[in-house]
Design a binder for these strands. Structure first.
Lengths: 155, 155
DNA sequence: CTTAATCGTTGACTTTATCAAGAGTTTAAG
DNA sequence: CTTAAACTCTTGATAAAGTCAACGATTAAG
């Protein structure tokens, strides 16, 4: 399928007719690439990245996750959680507490200043999300959230 | 918000009530992480990964993309395209051709054997997509594709 | 003709991903 | 109770991916 001569088309519009452009795998990859780039920009003034923000968010959720749980939920290797928590703990934003029920595990919880920073960070990611979904109606946004949630957590 | 004692909950169900679990940014990141892991598994017998598959797909699309266009469409740095094309070209799957209109650019096109491999690879990724979207109705699948496409290519 | 901009490529460097092994803790079996 | 197996965090090695500046060749602008 060739481009009609005479029409000026940018790269994206041209390749949009490819089979790849219709694949969910590709669409999610591109969406998350653009989204995390923007989120990282918005989080930079707070010295956070998407990764550290995600850990901080769960730490401040009141759900008292262990590092193992963070790794599973965030699709990361347990060994990747260690330096993330190290850094946040070093800044006084989260705390490691030995789980009294199972002293192998360490529960990660947000400190006061951790929660204060999280509040600001949450505003940043909310803004990023608003920008990303600007072209969707509120109803469509909720539909997208529901559909993605169901395929991200099937099982 | 604490878990009711007496109920046994796995990690994912517990953390599903977190604020993070409702963020599009997080949902797309998790979806693509699970999806690309599965796609890589299914593509492994063909000695392809999601990355090389994507390049092969666009090379076989008939749209004759340049390396620059591949980079932009795939959200990659131009320097990352080089070894990807090198590898595919070394296997005789794609060809680099100097663009006659602009000899700075190199157009990437699939060879006969490249197209044959792409046919098989496309079946693999289609199966992966079917697994990922198993819990969604056909109508919901098309809705998801449309919504994602609109936020992946806004502008 | 000169200058600036673009494309592919290379190389250096940082970040992220993957994997095996170890110390401490808990669970299960005998 | 004791021993073996399984689990959690941590470390370290290694591979893969991302970022960025610079260069030769080519094209576009003035």
């Amino acid at each position: 399928m060739a481009t009609r001569p005479g029409t000026t088309m940018n790269t994206i519009d041209r390749l949009l007719s490819s089979e790849l452009a219709g694949e969910i795998e590709f669409l999610t990859a591109r969406t998350r690439s653009l989204g995390s780039a923007r989120a990282n920009m918005l989080l930079e003034p707070l010295d956070l990245k998407v990764r550290s923000y995600s850990v901080l968010s769960l730490a401040c959720s009141g759900l008292a996750p262990t590092q193992r749980e963070l790794a599973e939920f965030l699709s990361l290797d347990p060994s990747q959680i260690v330096p993330l928590v190290d850094q946040l703990e070093g800044r006084g934003l989260v705390e490691r507490t030995a789980d009294p029920n199972d002293r192998r595990s360490k529960v990660i919880t947000g400190t006061k200043s951790g929660e204060q920073l999280y509040t600001k960070a949450r505003e940043a990611t909310a803004e990023g999300e608003a920008v990303a979904m600007a072209k969707l109606s509120k109803a469509e946004q909720e539909t997208l959230r529901d559909l993605l949630s169901r395929i991200a957590f099937r099982d």
